[in-house]
Each structure stands twice: as structure tokens, then as C-alpha cells.
Computed example of a mutant assay.
Amino acid sequence: MKILVLNGSPKREKSDTMHITRAFLDGMKEAAPQEVHIVNIIDKHIEYCTGCFICKRNGGECIHNDDMRELLGEVLESDLLLFSYPLYCYGMPAPMKAFADRTMPLSSMTMKKQGDRYVHIGQADFSHLKYMMICGCGFPNSKQNFEPAVMQFKLMFPNDHTIITVPESPMFNAPEAAEVTMPRLELVKQAGKQYAETGKIDDDLLTEICSPMIPEDVYASICNGEIKV
């Protein structure tokens, strides 16, 4: 499988969330060889979308001549598009949002009704693509935190999507937390292997991965400096 990983964290490889993503990819590689390309979005020249819609009328040609042309080409050549990013203000970090906005050339101005909503008809064939979102946050749990990002991802990619959201993710960059983070990464690795083999992740396994690693109040106390580690 050809996998394009879009790392939306400004921390690049030091991203808390990338610990989760790397474990997932390791699991996939256990099941079968994978062709993985990781792109740090922060390092790419991506201009902001101006909303001119020229790309939707002229066969996908954007007014900006930047790195998005190459990235969109790689998107269409991939089998799995994996968005890996930390939760910023309940959504994507700004550089990744700029990337998402600039995917407009993939669709045309023409619309069609799909269920209860209208969508733009594609200018390119990306029916073969699968989509994954791996997102971590620094809150003690997932309640009323990930919902906006999850809904946005589902609306962007209504088909063939898989979503992993993990609270307490800064612990993955804390060596002293290895006692709880390493078992969690092993579960993520198991999920990656399962996904590579079946195209899905067992619901119970996904629920366990997305649950807090330590009691919520203990994590909050550590973050607040009330408990020294």
C-alpha cells in the first residue's frame, strides 16, 4: 500500500501525535510491506486559498505556483491518505488547514445531491483513496474536544475513513510515562496490523486506544503542577 502521511504538527518528528502514527505504521508493516512517505506540512510552501474558484473551472489549475501542485499529485497516486496532527483550538493546526483548503482543485463547481447534502463533483478520480485521521490532544479525556475535528474530517471524506483520537497525548513525549504509554502504543501497533489485514479496526480495540491512559484527575493534577513526576 502506498501511504502518504501528512504530519500537521509544527514540531515535525517530535510531535506527540506522531508517536501514535509511527506505532500504527509499524503495525501495518508487520502485516505487509508498505510504501510510506511522511510530509511535514510546516516545511512546505502552501499559500492560503483565496476562494477565487478558478481551479474549479479550469481543470484544477490553481493560481498559486507552490508545493501544493506536487502534493496533490502525490495524493492522487496514494492508496491511503493519513492526516496526523495535534488538536489546535478544536481543529487542525493552521498549516494543515491551509493544505486542506487547497485541495479545492480536486473538485469542480458542479454539484450533486448526496443524501441530504450537496457536494462538488470531482475533477480527478480519487475513488481508490482511503482516509485516516490520527489526532492527539492534551486534555484528560475526549469529551467535547475532538468533535469539531472529527465532524470536519467526516464531511471532507465521507467514505472509507478511519479516525483515531487520543487524549493525554503529551505523555508520549515524556520518558517517565513509558509505563503507561508503551502498552498503549502496542495497542496502536495492533490496530495498524489489523487495519492492514482487514481494512478496519475492531471497535473494542479502537475504544481502548482512544481512552485516557491514566485517571483524568491525576493527569490534570500533573499538568497543573499539583503532582510532581
Score class of each variant (00 low, 15 high):
residue 2 K to T: 09
residue 3 I to P: 07
residue 6 L to D: 06
residue 12 R to K: 15
residue 16 D to I: 01
residue 22 R to Y: 10
residue 26 D to T: 04
residue 30 E to W: 01
residue 39 V to G: 11
residue 42 I to G: 00
residue 42 I to C: 02
residue 44 K to F: 03
residue 47 E to M: 14
residue 50 T to L: 10
residue 56 K to F: 04
residue 58 N to G: 08
residue 63 I to T: 15
residue 70 E to K: 15
residue 71 L to A: 08
residue 71 L to G: 12
residue 78 S to I: 09
residue 84 S to E: 10
residue 85 Y to I: 00
residue 86 P to Y: 00
residue 90 Y to Q: 05
residue 90 Y to T: 12
residue 97 K to Y: 04
residue 101 D to N: 14
residue 105 P to M: 12
residue 107 S to K: 05
residue 109 M to S: 02
residue 111 M to Q: 09
residue 112 K to W: 04
residue 115 G to M: 08
residue 120 H to I: 05
residue 121 I to W: 03
residue 123 Q to W: 12
residue 128 H to T: 01
residue 131 Y to Q: 04
residue 132 M to A: 15
residue 133 M to G: 07
residue 133 M to H: 00
residue 135 C to D: 01
residue 137 C to P: 02
residue 137 C to M: 11
residue 144 Q to A: 06
residue 145 N to D: 02
residue 146 F to W: 01
residue 147 E to Y: 13
residue 147 E to L: 02
residue 149 A to Q: 01
residue 149 A to L: 14
residue 152 Q to G: 00
residue 152 Q to K: 03
residue 152 Q to L: 07
residue 154 K to P: 01
residue 154 K to T: 06
residue 155 L to C: 12
residue 158 P to S: 08
residue 160 D to E: 12
residue 162 T to I: 09
residue 162 T to C: 08
residue 163 I to M: 07
residue 164 I to A: 01
residue 165 T to E: 06
residue 167 P to S: 06
residue 169 S to T: 15
residue 169 S to E: 12
residue 169 S to R: 03
residue 171 M to K: 03
residue 175 P to R: 14
residue 179 E to R: 13
residue 179 E to L: 12
residue 181 T to M: 08
residue 181 T to G: 09
residue 187 L to F: 07
residue 192 G to A: 09
residue 193 K to T: 00
residue 195 Y to P: 01
residue 196 A to Q: 04
residue 196 A to H: 01
residue 197 E to V: 01
residue 197 E to S: 11
residue 198 T to L: 00
residue 198 T to F: 02
residue 198 T to W: 06
residue 199 G to V: 10
residue 201 I to P: 03
residue 202 D to Y: 05
residue 204 D to Q: 14
residue 205 L to H: 14
residue 205 L to W: 11
residue 208 E to Q: 15
residue 209 I to D: 03
residue 214 I to L: 00
residue 215 P to Y: 12
residue 218 V to H: 02
residue 220 A to H: 07
residue 229 V to K: 05
residue 229 V to T: 12
residue 229 V to E: 11
